[in-house]
Amino acid sequence: MTEPSQDRVRTGIRDAFRRIAPEVDLESIDPSANLREEADLDSVDALNLIVLLDENLGVEIPESDYDQITTLADMRRYLTARIPGG
């Protein structure tokens, strides 16, 4: 079951980025680098991203967990562990 949830997380993240920062090519982003810096996201983008991840994947990320999703790899891991039905 891990494979489908990983795929769903990837798709959910990709869709969220298409809507808040369509010019960002996620494939070219270093998954271990700071995502906000790499993708040039400000705090408004960041909140929009969190809202879209909730909408797309059904995972509400509390503010206190923001430091656990600073890189793309961390974000994927965090979401994969919590996605409903994952």
Binding site: L47, I50, D54, E60, I61, P62, E63
Partner: peptide
């Protein structure tokens, strides 16, 4: 304020 709010209801410092 934001702790118990769902993402779409959180406030921005801005």
């Amino acid at each position: 304020t934001n702790r118990d709010r769902s993402p779409s209801r959180r406030l921005l410092l801005a």
